[in-house]
């Protein structure tokens, strides 16, 4: 009996001993696996509803529609069209994300009919006045961070890897992020954002995960809380659709002008 137990113990320890990977390697391996599992969805279309709350609990709502094109070997392309507040209706934001070099971003202003190329150095700036920064919602390429595995932990009844990641791109508002990655889905359940002074700034939690095309997990609701200001933002992702047949052409500057 003890012999058998000992053998079992040895067996479970074996992989760790054989590979002897460092915490950095294991962190990277988790990120690579997550990226690999979320590969091949081609394009996705969804509606996005944002509820912004200030410290006193006053609410305001923003609605927009998002389209994303998966680009192999580079960051994704995305187009976001604003529906509300009504004064910015028809405003559209086109972004070609890149792993390390700066993203290309254009803004279409419908009142002036003007397409403006804008600086993408504002990665840490608030997206539509919310608690989400541009860098929180843009495409999460493996190369954007370096990684370190911290520990395994149970979070709300689910097994997770806890990894720490450090932004490698310029102009990040963060020194580091701690990510709880679900072991089954290989998707984040929670992210803690630490500002450049290494103080806890925000916590993001993911809820209502659903699987699409029997493969891709997407969260239906994301809650971001800013610990320093007391403000919070809820993102509701609605009507997810995948592989709708979008092409590069749906993400060019001409499309931006007629996005409605």
């Amino acid at each position: 009996m003890t012999k058998w137990l000992f053998a079992l113990l040895l067996l479970t320890l074996l992989p760790v001993n054989v590979t002897a990977e460092s915490a950095e390697e294991k962190g990277l391996a988790i990120a690579v696996e997550a990226d690999k599992r979320d590969n091949g969805w081609a394009d996705q279309v969804s509606r996005l509803k944002m509820v912004l709350r200030n410290r006193r609990g006053d609410q305001s709502t923003r609605e927009n529609r998002s389209r994303v094109l998966e680009v192999n070997g580079d960051g994704d392309k995305s187009l976001i069209v604003f529906d509300s507040p009504r004064d910015v209706k028809g405003t559209a934001f086109l972004s070609y994300t890149h792993a390390i070099k700066p993203d290309d971003q254009w803004l279409y202003l419908p009142a002036l009919k003007r397409v403006k190329r804008i600086s993408s150095s504002n990665k840490s700036g608030p997206f539509m006045g919310s608690e989400f920064a541009y860098e929180d919602i843009s495409s999460q390429e493996v190369e954007k961070y370096s990684y370190k595995y911290l520990k395994d932990e149970r979070l709300d009844g689910r097994d997770t890897f806890v990894i720490e990641r450090y932004p490698q791109y310029k102009h990040s508002g963060y020194k580091r992020q701690v990510v709880w990655v679900d072991k089954q889905m290989y998707q984040p359940l929670k992210i803690e954002y630490y500002d450049r002074k290494n103080a806890l700034l925000k916590t993001l939690t993911y809820h209502e995960y659903q699987q699409y095309l029997d493969r891709y997990w997407r969260s239906g609701r994301m809650e971001m809380v800013n610990h320093q200001t007391g403000k919070s933002t809820t993102l509701h992702w609605l009507e997810y659709k995948f592989q709708t047949g979008l092409t590069e052409r749906d993400f060019d500057r001409n499309t931006l002008k007629r996005a409605k």
């Binding site: 600086s119 150095s121 504002n122 840490s124 700036g125 608030p126 102009h171 508002g173």
Partner: peptide, 12 residues
């Protein structure tokens, strides 16, 4: 030229 995130706020 834009100074983004002036004085650690979201303002530019």
């Amino acid at each position: 030229y834009t100074f983004f995130g002036l004085f650690d706020t979201g303002a530019d």
